[in-house]
């Protein structure tokens, strides 16, 4: 059922509940642990899997077309993500990819720096343009006369 949760690992911290875009990771009131309440609305997006601090959530491919006996599991750190894949025949694959080149929290807020001028407000340029376009001027076209 796309995501499932290992009983021995889940601590009921609600991180998966907070993050799931489909609102389908809920806490089972009897067990105090998370589970997927609506597998047919799970996108296998892995947002909950990546967010779980206990690595308690895994994915079992959709029953309609995914035979059993496989696994795809990530470990995400601040600058990279590692994937471990187990194919149906037991073969293993591992891949690691970067996810960010700057420290988390380092983005410059748009209100840092001087306020835009009145002239900039009425023109077509967006924030930090034309500098961030890396060309001299914003392209435009002569307006065509209105056709009847």
């Amino acid at each position: 059922m796309p995501t499932f949760v290992r009983t021995d690992k889940c601590k009921g911290c609600m991180e998966c509940v907070r993050i799931c875009p489909s609102d389908i990771m809920h806490i089972d009131p009897e067990q105090g642990r998370a589970y997927n309440i609506e597998p047919a609305m799970c996108w296998e997006c892995f947002a909950c899997v990546k967010a779980c601090p206990e690595a308690a959530i895994e994915v079992r491919g959709y029953a309609d077309f995914a035979p059993l006996g496989h696994s795809v599991q990530p470990t995400r750190t601040p600058d990279k993500i590692e994937w471990k894949i187990r194919m149906r025949n037991g073969d293993q694959k591992e891949f690691t990819f970067p996810i960010r080149t700057t420290p988390w929290g380092s983005i410059r807020a748009p209100q840092e720096g001087a306020s835009p001028s009145a002239e900039a407000r009425s023109g077509e340029l967006l924030s930090f343009e034309p500098d961030y376009l890396a060309v001299e001027a914003l392209p435009t076209l002569p307006r065509r006369p209105t056709t009847a």
Partner: peptide, 12 residues
Amino acid sequence: TIGQAVTWASQG
């Protein structure tokens, strides 16, 4: 589209 990797792994 991680589901595609899951599909490949599961369908061999």
